[in-house]
């Protein structure tokens, strides 16, 4: 078992024992990473903060369900993503989302990503429409398939594909214009 996982187990046991120091330590350890996740799923910083806060309350409530199998961080991440999706599902089923015209043209300029700063990309991602943003996150960053995304969001697979395509295009344009 890796060292960080061992440390996590101690933290989790402390939290299950309601040790306030462990509870705080767990928060301090994972909040920056979880906040970055909330941030890229949220439409603004206020919503990101809400998602982080509510997500952590869920984490402490559900901690007893963690089976000590697999990565704890992965387990946490799923809680935060699922929590964000609960918010998003309502927005994403708006009919106008499906109505996307085909646009096969990708931006001709290749972006030099290594020069970009993560927070600036995040800021651009937040500006995307909710559907684009969510599908980009789930498909590109989290690596879910269109089939899985369709199930998670209650949309069709082809909608997921169109949203990704359109979203990727828009994000490229935004990044080209802003960097």
């Amino acid at each position: 078992m890796s060292q960080p996982e061992e440390r996590n187990i101690l933290l989790i046991k402390g939290c299950l024992a309601q040790n306030p120091k462990s509870q705080k330590a767990l928060f301090d350890t994972f909040a920056p990473t979880m906040y970055a996740i909330c941030y890229r799923y949220a439409k603004n910083s206020d919503q990101a903060k809400d998602l982080l806060q509510e997500g952590f309350i869920k984490v402490y409530t559900k901690l007893g369900e963690f089976k000590f199998e697999g990565s704890f961080e992965g387990w946490l991440k799923r809680i935060f993503i699922n929590h964000a999706l609960e918010y998003i599902r309502k927005e994403i089923r708006q009919p106008d989302m499906v109505n996307v015209e085909d646009s096969h043209e990708l931006s001709s300029t290749t972006i030099q990503f290594h020069e970009l700063d993560t927070q600036k990309i995040m800021a651009q991602i937040q500006k995307l429409p909710t559907g684009y943003r969510t599908v980009i996150n789930l498909f590109i960053i989290e690596g879910y398939s269109h089939k899985e995304i369709a199930e998670m969001l209650g949309i069709s697979e082809s909608t997921s594909k169109t949203q990704l395509h359109k979203g990727r295009h828009m994000l490229q344009k935004m990044l080209n214009n802003n960097f």
Partner: peptide, 29 residues
């Protein structure tokens, strides 16, 4: 292009961290 874009986006964002806004721990705690 798509693959490069996706790979770079993933690399920039996956596992990234951001400073936690004030007051969140207090509310959670």
């Amino acid at each position: 292009h798509i693959n490069t874009f996706d790979a770079m986006l993933k690399q920039s964002l996956e596992g990234s961290q951001m400073p936690v806004p004030a007051g969140v721990w207090e509310a959670v705690g």
